[in-house]
Amino acid sequence: MSRESMLAKTLIELADTLVADFDVVELLTILADRCVDVLDVGAAGLMLAGPDGRLRVMASSSEKMRFLELFELQSQEGPCLDCYRTGQPVVNQDLAKVNGRWPRFGPEATAAGFRSVHALPMRLRGSIIGALNLFHVEVGTMRSADIEAAQAFADVATIAILQHRAKLEAQVVNEQLNQALNSRIVIEQAKGMIAQREGIDMAEAFARLRNQARERNLRLADFARQVITGTRGALDGSAFDGSALDGSALDGSALDGSAPTNSVLRNRP
């Protein structure tokens, strides 16, 4: 297979992982493996920043590479960290000449059999989410075509990860929205039941519902759910103060004791 068709195949493979069951680690493992297969490098690895901004090793083409990447993080020096901090590529660093730059990482990488190292940023416009490490076993400069190809792989992966994160966030917020709406429905239904049983208006019914929930240390929506399903008496009877509550759910006696208080929600219908 020609180099061009291998590059194209890799880009398609990376794009393919975006379709269904997107998995960040799987995507980055493919990326690391293909860098070794397609480009002229001895080992490749990827680090991504977590929510706290600290880098983590996500994928490595070999165990030796994984160890070196962990060592980079531990010693807080190396090409990946420099690249992530500056957002700029670090290329063609001859390990025989960098001991001043990376006094701990340099000897460790040399001992592992590598001669030169490179790191490319995973960035989209202003966001830098991590870096791609490429290690060579021979001394020498990386071909610019290989650097370009590696950056293209990193770019595809970066866009995929950012889109995936945005999608996850939207999903979470939408679920929270639906949950909040469902909670409100249950609360309104419970208000209606109490208002009917007690012959009081909705504002007062809400005040009683809220006070009852507070006394039992329950979330309003959870207590309301117990009220509308009629399970409240059974649950409260054993777990809480039995005596006042083992009767039917929300009968007069249990509610009369709690005087309604002012509430920000009280004036709602």
């Binding site: 409100r184 309104e188 208000k191 209606g192 039941m193 208002a195 509308i228």
Partner: peptide
């Protein structure tokens, strides 16, 4: 919300679930 409040009231009036 008024629909759900009413459902709660009718549930008690008819002794059925919401």
């Amino acid at each position: 919300y008024v629909v759900h409040q009413a459902a709660g009231m009718v549930a008690v009036q008819l002794d059925v679930n919401v």
